[in-house]
């Protein structure tokens, strides 16, 4: 199945898309022949335990999961499987979180923290191999739909050097950007806990929208 693991709705300060509009756009993509099963909302520096998209998701046959994108000492991290225990332990609004502590806390709380757009200038992990113990990093966001020239190459270099597994996400801030990069999972994912399980176990890869045409799947 294909999931966009990195999207922002109007709940993020710099996004202009509503969740309902993303769902409509998923319909547009499907009518155009692309495969997309759902997306994860990774709002900047926050997590809302109460917001519930299950009806919208069910009515439109779109999986809508919730995560977060946090600002750390080692660039931005996507956090999946956020629990109340994790939000109690970590101040999501803090723009200088210790990345190593975040990864540990996430793991201890049944979540996973994954470096977002690792090749990005300024806020990608690529620039922060400064002696900190980054051995907990196993997965990074390989394909990001908002990369600028040079950033994808840095991400690839990092992945090759360290042997990381790679996800894909559009980093959509506008409706029409959703799904431009996604993650293809070999097994079904139906909730946040399963997403964490799959990301820890392997069996996924980063794809671009073009790769999702039926019969046209190819590796990156």
């Amino acid at each position: 199945m294909y999931l966009d693991l990195h999207t922002h709705s109007v709940s993020s300060d710099d996004s202009r898309a509503t969740v309902e509009q993303y769902v409509k756009w998923v319909g547009v993509l499907r009518r155009r022949g692309w495969q997309i099963d759902g997306f994860v909302l990774t709002e900047h520096r926050k997590f809302d335990h109460d917001v519930d998209y299950s009806t919208l998701a069910r009515d439109n046959d779109v999986l809508i999961l919730k995560g977060s994108e946090l600002d750390t000492s080692h660039g931005h991290f996507l956090v999946y499987g956020v629990t109340e225990e994790l939000t109690d332990r970590v101040d999501f609004s803090h723009v200088g979180l210790d990345a190593v502590c975040l990864m540990r806390a996430a793991d201890e709380c049944g979540a996973i923290a994954v470096p977002a757009h690792p090749g990005r200038f300024g806020v990608g992990l690529y620039e922060y191999y400064d002696g900190a113990d980054l051995s907990a990093v196993r997965v990074v966001e390989r394909l990001n739909g908002s990369n600028r020239p040079g950033e994808q190459e840095r991400a690839e270099e990092l992945i090759q050097r360290h042997g990381y597994a790679g996800t894909g996400g559009s980093d959509a801030h506008l409706v029409s950007a959703i799904g431009t990069c996604m993650t293809r999972f070999d097994q079904e994912v139906s909730n946040e806990a399963e997403l964490v399980e799959r990301l820890k176990a392997g069996g996924f890869r980063a794809v671009r929208l073009e790769d999702t045409a039926r019969g046209g799947d190819c590796d990156h």
Binding site: R16, P149, H173, V175, A177
Partner: peptide, 19 residues
Amino acid sequence: IQCDVFLQDPQGTRLIIGK
């Protein structure tokens, strides 16, 4: 209607995005 809007440079980089 609502729409996404873009202004991009000759290299295709979106310098301005919006709705």
